[in-house]
């Protein structure tokens, strides 16, 4: 595995959807790590692993997207780019109240759309 490869952190509680992301994004030259909620995500972030992009689900148990994002920006002072992922635009309001996003992935939009967004964000 090349050290040049970018790493994407997927934060998503539904493992079926995690698998889907792995398949769809696996077609891009990226490394993928998954977390089931915000807390798990911080364990990975704090382990020292370099993360280039985060796909963030809005509604999750334990620590949802809103709490994660607020903590990431305010406590960790991290500027890692985030792409909110959810079933509709209404659900990502809990994220858009903290920052504006140029891309939001709606889960019914299909793999092609997701690939395009991620590729654009990572400059692939």
């Amino acid at each position: 595995m090349s050290s040049q490869r970018k790493t994407i952190l997927i934060i998503e509680d539904d493992t079926d959807i995690q698998d889907y992301y792995r398949i769809v994004l696996g077609k891009l030259p990226v490394e993928i790590v998954c977390a089931g909620n915000g807390e798990e995500a911080f364990l990975i972030l704090n382990s020292g692993k370099r993360i280039d992009l985060i796909l963030l689900d809005a509604i999750m148990p334990v620590m949802d997207g809103g709490v994660f994002l607020q903590k990431l920006r305010q406590e960790q002072k991290s500027s890692i780019p985030v792409i909110p992922c959810s079933v509709d635009e209404k659900s990502v309001e809990c994220l858009t109240q903290f920052q504006q996003f140029d891309h939001i992935f709606i889960k019914t939009q299909g793999g092609r759309v997701l690939q395009n967004i991620v590729a654009q964000k990572l400059g692939l």
Binding site: D14, K107, T108, G110
Partner: peptide, 9 residues
Amino acid sequence: KTPVAKQVM
């Protein structure tokens, strides 16, 4: 919507 999204996927 989640089950529908999964169907799409």
